[in-house]
Design a protein around this nucleic acid. Sequence first.
DNA 1: TGATTATATAAGCATTCGCTTATATAATGT
DNA 2: ACATTATATAAGCGAATGCTTATATAATCA
Lengths: 115, 115
Amino acid sequence: MTVLHEVSIEQGAQLLKLLGDKTRLTIVSILMYEECCVCELVEVLKMSQPSISQHIAKLKSAEIVKERRKGQWIFYRINKDSELFPLVESISTHIPDQKDQIKQLEVNGMRVCCD
Amino acid sequence: MTVLHEVSIEQGAQLLKLLGDKTRLTIVSILMYEECCVCELVEVLKMSQPSISQHIAKLKSAEIVKERRKGQWIFYRINKDSELFPLVESISTHIPDQKDQIKQLEVNGMRVCCD
DNA sequence: TGATTATATAAGCATTCGCTTATATAATGT
DNA sequence: ACATTATATAAGCGAATGCTTATATAATCA
């Protein structure tokens, strides 16, 4: 029984440190379910825009999330091609999903839609 | 398909923060495989005794590890009864096991044995 | 009892972290 | 061109982190 998708202790510790923050863990949990832009995360998490942007920047520099610009907005999503993704996904299955928060966004008409 | 063993975002983030340190992640990875005392971890990790003790204290206060005194020594092991254990175990399968380091201890005659 | 060994704990200190406020960049719309 | 909206980035600051050194506690052994 081989364990696939192994990462080094260093890589693992670095990832866990990144996800060891409630805000970033929530962001990752949300993005695991839906692509989002910063302003949506600001709305959902009730935090300042610079704070969210800074958290996103850390996740981006670790290649945990990818970005896609669409007009004014930049949409972020989980980078499933990352070698860290299996660990990220594994962690996310142990915490509550954030579907309700996205649904709440839609109900409040705050969901950004531009497709 | 229900996901069992879920923890809150807060609990999860707190655990990941704890394991988001190379030293503590290594300790947990070692203890996942073998019960160890502080002096063995000092030997394996090449770190000072107070430093190891302080890391252990954090893992202990989060109930990730349990202790068992045996004469002069206090042996630490993973607390499999913790509600966090499933997540800890899940993470540990994504990083290299530390069997070789324990083997090295034995080869060097540094393994504490008192059973 | 006194020395030794194992471990814990406290104080001090440099570094890191996560927020805030302020400002810069980039795209859109009038 | 100019105002608006979305996002990024920089500076500053207080809190948390992880080490060090020094000391305390606890068990063993001569």
